[in-house]
Computed example of a mutant assay.
Amino acid sequence: MYFLTKELYFPPVTETDFSGILAVGGDLSTERLLLAYNSGIFPWFEDGEPITWWAPDPRMVLLLDELNISKSMRNILNRNIFTVTFNSDFRAVISNCQSIKREGQNGTWITDDMIEAYCKLHELGHAQSVEVWQDDQLVGGLYGVDLGHIFCGESMFAKVSNASKVAFIKLVEYLKANNYLLLDCQVYNEHLESLGAFEVNRESFMKVLKSRKAV
């Protein structure tokens, strides 16, 4: 494990430990975050802990053609229960992702410093959000880092059933229409697996990231 200083640097992702941790320390500056994501690395830590940088192997991804939409979910989409927008309230989305109660979790990894760092990324065009509305109320959404050919999903939330799934599906439709190669889901998640995501080895993920070509 590497300990970062103020120097804008990350070690090769092959230097991660068995759990996928590459380094600790550094900061959440725009420059460091962009270097991290473009190097296959992302921050993940809880409030009060040092900044921890990950490059897990395997990596959870979704190939855009392999999105799995259930029959019941198609019915919900066809009924137009929700209204979906992009980038209309990034701060509200990330703040809801921070505060939403999640089963089996006592706290959140989205610290106040992370909110400010990702809002700055959004202002510069490097982070995007999807909002899901019902009766003019924000009931779901997601946000992530946009690399232009890969979208790195960070977190999602839902206040009513299926709202986060709608955000996810609409995001994938947008990415596919704009010729993105894949959606990076980072680490295994049963919910995302049900939508078609699966694990690949880190080497395969890095090839897509660096070559900007699907494998």
Rank of each mutant, 00 (worst) to 15 (best):
H122W: 06
L138M: 05
L63M: 09
H122G: 03
I81S: 06
T52C: 10
E46L: 04
Q105F: 15
Q98M: 13
V130A: 03
N38K: 14
A55K: 03
R79N: 13
N87R: 10
P43A: 03
W44M: 07
T30P: 10
A92E: 15
D57E: 06
N38S: 15
L64I: 05
G141K: 08
R74K: 15
V139C: 05
Q128V: 09
L35W: 06
S95Q: 13
I100S: 04
I81G: 02
Q128E: 12
D146E: 06
E31T: 07
V93Q: 07
D136M: 07
W53T: 04
F45C: 05
S72K: 06
R91F: 02
L138W: 10
Q128H: 15
Q134D: 08
Y118D: 06
E131M: 06
V145W: 01
C119W: 02
N96Q: 14
W54F: 08
F90D: 08
G104Q: 06
C119F: 04
S72F: 02
L77I: 14
H122N: 15
V61E: 01
R32V: 04
D57K: 03
L28A: 09
D89N: 15
N78W: 00
G40V: 07
G48Y: 11
L138R: 10
N96A: 14
S39H: 05
V93A: 00
S29W: 09
L63S: 03
F45Q: 00
L124Q: 14
A36V: 12
E49W: 08
R59Q: 13
L77P: 02
N38I: 00
R32Y: 08
N80M: 04
S29L: 10
C119T: 14
R79T: 02
G144M: 06
K71F: 00
W54Q: 11
W109A: 10
G107Q: 14
V61K: 03
H122M: 12
G144N: 08
E31K: 14
H122K: 08
D27H: 04
F42A: 02
N75V: 01
L35G: 07
H122Y: 08
A55N: 01
W44T: 04
P56W: 02
